[in-house]
Design a protein around this nucleic acid. Structure first.
Lengths: 185, 185
DNA sequence: CGATTGGCTTTACACTGTCAAGTTGAGTGA
DNA sequence: TCACTCAACTTGACAGTGTAAAGCCAATCG
């Protein structure tokens, strides 16, 4: 495998930059290649064409996602209120979707892909989420509660990415906090 | 060459078909043109390039969306239980996202576009949703409750489109019903 | 009748992903 | 030392894409 410089990793990083800077349509094999200083066909040689590179980028995206969730958790004191922990981690989820919209969209678009690395990275991030809402299950059906709280968070993230759905209401994080309280309370 | 029925509407309908049959990447100006039996540049002449055609298709999508929500409501007897109405309409929301995934994605991708027709179509659909959850606001903060129930529904729709997020758990509609009950109860 | 205009076609161009073939260069074995 | 190998690229070509400019042509209008 590539000892020298590790071009695949450089291509993934370049793709992430391109995604953040220019959005979804900026992610192109040839642009990544040009920015990485290699020939236009080099990326396709290391990944399985554009789809392969996209899942590789999405996988790295889930790892960054995990890192931000963990950071949000570790920023609180170890004896913090469980609800504050839950809120902090879920707000990190939502902030990620707003700050890295194109990447967030790519990640969840690529999720159906049956790629092992992608699955593992996504599951690792999901495990962090699970850890924080399990204390609130109570006597409710665990699967339903899990579905509820996760769909609430993801839905809020998806809808507040670029704009609110009903263009009048400004979706803000405090209204998410209220909604979360409704659910766990 | 279509004598009757204006070409723009035919192009939109062709685009919707193409989207349903071949997914997002099947939606192409040239393919739409070919299927509609016109030259490859005809679509760009009536809409503002591909972006314009996409928002036009998304707008029509929101109109179909509205129609399905209304149909779900009208399928119940007029004296039906409010929760059953709410559930039926929201399940229609979710079914739409599963049955017409590519269109659903396009609709919410194009939503940020500052297009008046698109806004109006999206708001009309949203109004139907609002009608059904307002009876359950109770003494809660209306905006937060609205956010909660709508984010829950949209999140569930988004996550169950192609796949479950944690690839193990099969997201099904009955778990959504439970989640909805948790929220409105 | 000639001019105009709107609907569409034709042509051209830059850009995309992908494939096949070529190049290069660092290792490897005898 | 000297071919040989083989993976990492490069080069070149091709079909498909959106878009812009120009052309065509029937209907309309003054």
């Amino acid at each position: 495998m590539p000892m020298r410089g590790d071009l695949p990793q450089l291509l993934i990083k370049t793709g992430l930059d391109l995604l953040d800077e220019e959005g979804t349509e900026g992610l192109t094999l040839r642009r990544i290649a040009a920015r990485a200083g290699v020939s236009h066909a080099a990326p396709a040689h290391h990944f399985n064409g554009l789809p392969g590179l996209r899942t590789a980028i999405a996988t790295q995206g889930f790892r960054s996602f995990l890192h931000e969730l963990v950071s949000a958790r570790d920023a609180l004191p170890p004896d913090a209120d469980p609800f504050l922990c839950l809120l902090a981690v879920n707000q990190a989820y939502i902030r990620f979707s707003r700050r890295r919209t194109a990447l967030f969209r790519l990640m969840f678009d690529q999720l159906p892909t049956e790629d092992n690395d992608l699955r593992q990275a996504a599951l690792a991030a999901y495990a962090i989420l699970q850890d924080h809402w399990t204390p609130f299950v109570g006597d409710r059906h665990p699967a339903s509660f899990e579905t509820a709280i996760w769909a609430l968070t993801h839905g809020f993230a998806a809808l507040s990415m670029d704009r609110p759905y009903p263009p009048d209401t400004p979706v803000n994080l405090s209204s998410y906090e209220d909604a979360l309280r409704l659910l766990v309370g």
